[in-house]
Nucleic acid binder design. Structure first.
Lengths: 158, 158
DNA sequence: ATGTATGCAAAGAGTTTGCAAATGG
DNA sequence: CCATTTGCAAACTCTTTGCATACAT
């Protein structure tokens, strides 16, 4: 179901630099830092989350925004909208695979689901004349851990 | 594929008032107006869009925000995130059905898709211990109309 | 050398909050 | 009559923009 520890993200810094060059983007320190943070995370992060993980004085928060916009444009990262008004980003692997997540309503943790989703739906759209098709899909739920916590608390009121 | 004109939304004002009462919300003028606007629309609307369709002086924009938050809480409306940083809302029908949309990358029009999506995925989550499960799913593409337009323009450069 | 990227400050936009006044049941 | 709801003003947060400076190639 999930790949909590099984990500095959690019953690090799050399490779990150290469992917930067291949994207036509200059290999700068802020960009390397943003990519490194993303490479070490199991779940999508917001600009602010990335910035604090970089060590505050690594670069300006604005630069993180600009890096992520560039990265998305060239396909280096995938943006997610989890409905809390914060865009979150994850590193794409080279194969172009993207992930979908289940977000816990309580603890907000994001867990990847290794399902490859509605391709036949995109096909239906293509037949109808749509082109350049993509999709977003996220799940929201109470995770097993938080559910237990809730049950304990309701069993022992106060 | 789509139900452009075939919506079975509640357009009967009397019924809208009933649904308000059944939700434990007071039947106020702003709330009735918001519901009426939603009942007459074929695609999800943002708070601002709803507000302008109400006739500006119907109520304050803030009230629209509060109405929609309440409506979502009691299940009267469904919120969508189309990735432009504006939450959009559509009226739910009583059966609890919700829709998914394809958003045109050019003209931004939203067209409903009458597909009922990944229930088996929710089942997989349930088996893993997740509860209170819901999902979001949206498609993004260039619609047939805008694609034609693009082709014409590229065929006759300048 | 030159176009690209960054920092800083400030603006924009959507959404939320505080509180007194109005209103629904 | 009393809790709920609204209006108005202001705050908050995320994100974007302008422009001079610094940097990568």
């Amino acid at each position: 179901m999930t790949t909590e520890a099984g990500h095959s993200k690019q953690r090799d810094p050399q490779d990150l630099a290469q992917r930067l060059r291949h994207s036509g983007l200059r290999n700068t320190r802020p960009r390397r830092y943003v990519l490194e943070v993303l490479a070490h995370e199991e779940q999508p992060l917001s600009s602010r989350e990335i910035h604090s993980r970089m060590g505050e004085q690594a670069c300006d928060l604005v630069t993180v925004y600009r890096c992520l916009a560039d990265f998305e444009r060239v396909g280096l990262v995938q943006r997610h909208e989890f409905g809390d008004g914060n865009a979150r980003y994850e590193l794409n692997d080279q194969s172009g695979h993207h992930r979908h997540y289940v977000v816990c309503r309580i603890c907000q943790r994001k867990e990847a689901m290794d399902v490859c989703p509605p391709h036949w739906l995109e096909e239906k759209l293509r037949v109808r004349g749509y082109s350049d098709i993509s999709h977003s899909m996220e799940f929201f739920a109470v995770c097993p851990h938080c559910r237990l916590q809730e049950e304990r608390e309701s069993a022992r009121p106060q």
